[in-house]
Nucleic acid binder design. Structure first.
Lengths: 340, 340
DNA sequence: TTGTAAGCGTTATCAC
DNA sequence: GTGATAACGCTTACAA
């Protein structure tokens, strides 16, 4: 086991000073050609690689960005990571991933941990609990310390930072409009509780679409789900004897549960009821019937977020702070869970 | 924007020396009670947190572990990350995630990047291309430098390191035996190319099960798929006019493609053909019919890997190197794609 | 052309 | 009890 090679060792080995080695490896013009050659050859031979930690300490930047997301099993977040990773790697950055498990405390802890030198900036989507509490002091502190923060998907208005979101309202409208277009009159909404920003926005979109089409908005046609765990049962109860011809669900799991329940109650999909989901995951694609969904382009969101963050990191600190909100367009992917 | 507080600043502020501050914060008995109190109060007030990078440099350890996986969209890998994350966080470690995209070069690059001080050790599953090439010099080098490495799932025999795998052969046998038990005689196998270790092992298991049951092994009943992209078409061609009553697929995607094709050809699942998959993902659970699968316990694998790695990291370096291979048992989850 | 020294933030050793 | 100093590995003025 040979420990990693350092400048010091090379210097000793070659009987020159450390700074000479450092300069030679950076191809500085201060150093004589032959010395440079010698040093470079040696470094190459023994595969010298500078120590990132030392560099980080010296430069006060780590070249890594931290991602904190609520959960990883959600396919959407996975695709976002993938997008961030891609851009980050291209630009020479590493990616540190932490999961908050939707817990406020864990989110704060993770953030503090990473903020103490491990990361140059953050990309994150807030934990459900955080949004519920409405406590964002950890975000504000991080920003105050001069660490850039890019929020995506589950964002919050009153924090001044860059944001990458999809147009949830319009995405939902698109979905509901499509249902209306194909002739649905009694459209149910299956969504999450209001404190989850996206749930609220999609609910707005649903209501707007109905309103604009002159259809009545009936609160009893809206189901708000708190816990993923109970969702199947709740959806079952909700839809069992409801007379619907269209269902808009804010994620693919809800959509699939809806389809199952409806089928069990002898409603055909899409002949009797059309169902649309949100987020284009593996499930939507491969389920039978395959799901018509509002596609969310997680990878692109990740790429955007990474680009914004790195851009900010590489800019001179003194530049004026200006925050942008990027809205990634949603698309409607038509498949077999809706009438054509 | 206030920059992070350092020992130096506290020292200046309180007009004591840096080392006094350091000691006071560590509650050293060398320091007088009142000074300690004063310093601690100040640190608490201004929320002092030591800089991780400086600590890493000093201690020559980063308290982070690097995960390199081929792809993240595979649900299995996601669950492994989740497991690693959980254990790592509990033990005060961070997790750095890199994706190799199944590319050998990217895997090597990622590894070199992280090995230069960013990580104390690695948990990884090899890229397909790496296994194909059979070039493992980067693994060996990392180990030689004294960085512990834990391989999981896609492992390779002739590298001396800890491994966490599932019993692929037995898992496959379990699946095929189940098919045999429920009366299947003509069982097809849909697997990956042989250089992917798990594909090969599962193929062995399939063959063994048939052999032990006295059933013929017919090569024309085995489909080896190279590229995920073409899988659907290939499976379609393969099964179209094949006379089978059971299918064992080495992942859930293949299993679902098989079901689709069979259904399109008017074979009922499970009445006419029973299908079993491998890896218990979201798809298996929610597909209709829900899939009988060999469950792989990714989260547990991640936990095991993390525990082994951290254990090794915290042990004194001098201890003799001894490597273990943990085999995580598979289970058979019976659902509706197989006859009962 | 090469070397010295200070500094990034911390801790440990030793001196006062 | 408290403080100066060296060290972790590297970069960069500034001397020589």
């Amino acid at each position: 086991m040979k420990p990693k090679l350092t400048l010091k060792q090379i210097a000793k080995e070659l009987d020159v000073s450390i700074s000479t080695v450092s300069k030679a490896l950076k191809d500085s013009s201060e150093i004589g050609e032959d010395t440079k050659e010698k040093i470079k050859a040696f470094a190459k031979l023994y595969n010298y690689k500078p120590n990132n930690i030392a560099l980080s300490l010296k430069n006060r930047k780590t070249k890594t960005i931290g991602i904190i997301i609520p959960e990883i099993v959600h396919h959407f977040f996975t695709t976002v990571i993938s997008g961030v990773e891609k851009v980050a790697n291209e630009l020479g950055y590493n990616v540190l991933v932490c999961l908050s498990d939707n817990s406020f405390d864990k989110e704060v802890l993770n953030m503090e941990m990473l903020a103490n030198g491990s990361t140059d900036g953050f990309i994150m989507s807030l934990a459900k609990e955080t949004m519920q509490k409405g406590d964002y002091h950890h975000l504000q502190e991080t920003i105050n310390q001069g660490m850039p923060l890019v929020l995506f998907d589950r964002v919050v208005d009153n924090i001044a930072c860059d944001k990458v979101i999809i147009d949830d309202v319009n995405g939902a409208k698109k979905a509901v409009n499509h249902l209306i277009d194909i002739g649905c009159k009694k459209i149910a909404l299956i969504t999450t509780v209001d404190y989850v920003s996206v749930g609220k926005l999609r609910t707005h979109g649903y209501q707007q679409a109905l309103y604009e089409a002159g259809l009545p908005i009936d609160e009893s046609m809206i189901l708000k789900i708190e816990e993923m765990e109970d969702s199947e049962r709740e959806i079952d109860n909700f839809l069992k004897e409801k007379n619907v011809d269209g269902v808009f669900a804010v994620n693919e799991h809800f959509a699939i549960s809806a389809i199952k329940t409806l089928q069990e109650n002898n409603r055909r999909i899409p002949e009797d009821v059309s169902v649309i989901g949100f987020t284009d995951g593996e499930l939507s694609k491969r389920f039978i019937p395959s799901l018509t969904t509002v596609s969310q382009h997680g990878e692109r969101m990740g790429e955007e977020a990474a680009r914004i963050l790195i851009d900010k990191l590489e800019r001179s600190v003194s530049e004026e702070d200006t925050y942008k909100t990027i809205i990634v367009e949603t698309g409607l992917v038509r498949r077999n869970s809706t009438k054509s």
